[in-house]
Write a protein that binds this DNA or RNA. Structure first.
Lengths: 106, 106
DNA sequence: TTCATGTGATACCTTTTGGTATCTCATTAA
DNA sequence: TTAATGAGATACCAAAAGGTATCACATGAA
C-alpha cells in the first residue's frame, strides 16, 4: 500500500521544481503561468511539471484548453514518513536538530 | 547564514544513499562496512558517502587507517525547514496531510 | 470558417550521475 | 622490514537529466 518514494524524492531534487512547488502553494497555475516565472522554454517547464506529477506532488486538471496545476499536500507524505524513521534514533539528539532548524530559519 | 539546501536535497535523491543513512542511523560504519551491504564496488559506495558528506548528512572521522562515517542529524535541517515553508499554506489542509502520513506508514 | 492560443510530443544535444577498473598511499600486523 | 589492509584518486563508460527546437493538435475568439 506504500507509495514508492523514489519519484517523490527525485522530484524534490531539482531547485526549479522546488520553486514551482512554492509558487503552486500560493496559487494554482497553468503551464504558461509557471513558464512566465522562469528563464527557460515552456517545454522545459512542462517536463518539470511532469516530474512533479509523477512524484505525486502536484495534480493537473483540464479546464478548456488550459491545464490547471495544483499542489498536492498528500504527495509529501512518502518523504515525511521516510523522515519519521529516524525519530526513533534521535530520542536525545532530536532537540539539537530542532534548534538547528530554528537557526536555519533565522 | 542559511546553508544551501541543494546539496542536501541532491544527496537524498538516491535510494542507495537513503539506505546508507538508515544504516548509519543504527550505528557508525567504515566504508568497508557500508560496502558489505551493497552489490557494488567500494569506490561507488565511497562516492555516495562523499555526496552525503557534501550534503551535510554525515560526518567522517579518521581513526587510524579507518574512516568512521556517522549520521549528522543537523544536516536534515535545511530540508525540514524547507518543508516548513508550506505550513502557512496548509492551515486547513494540514490535517489531511497528517492522516495521509498515517496511512503511508500502515 | 479562420486564426490565434494553450498545450502535447518528439528528436536532439550537453552535462551530470552512478558505476567500474586501476593505481597509489597510509597504516597496521607478522 | 615486509605483507596485508583500508582508503583516496583518477580515468573511463553508459545512462539519466535538463534543456532547446520544432511540429502537431485541440480549443476559443473573430
Amino acid at each position: 500500500m506504500n507509495m514508492p518514494s523514489q519519484p517523490t524524492f527525485r522530484a524534490l531534487a531539482d531547485p526549479t521544481r522546488r520553486d514551482i512547488l512554492k509558487m503552486l502553494a500560493a496559487q494554482d497555475m497553468t503551464i504558461a503561468d509557471v513558464s512566465g516565472h522562469f528563464d527557460m522554454t515552456r517545454a522545459a517547464v512542462k517536463k518539470h511539471l511532469t516530474v512533479l506529477s509523477d512524484g505525486g506532488l502536484i495534480t493537473v486538471e483540464a479546464r478548456g484548453r488550459e491545464r490547471i496545476n495544483s499542489i498536492n499536500p498528500q504527495g509529501f507524505a512518502p518523504v515525511l514518513s521516510w523522515f519519521e524513521y529516524f525519530d526513533g534514533f534521535w530520542d536525545d539528539r532530536l532537540s539539537a536538530l530542532k534548534s538547528a532548524i530554528e537557526k536555519d530559519n533565522t
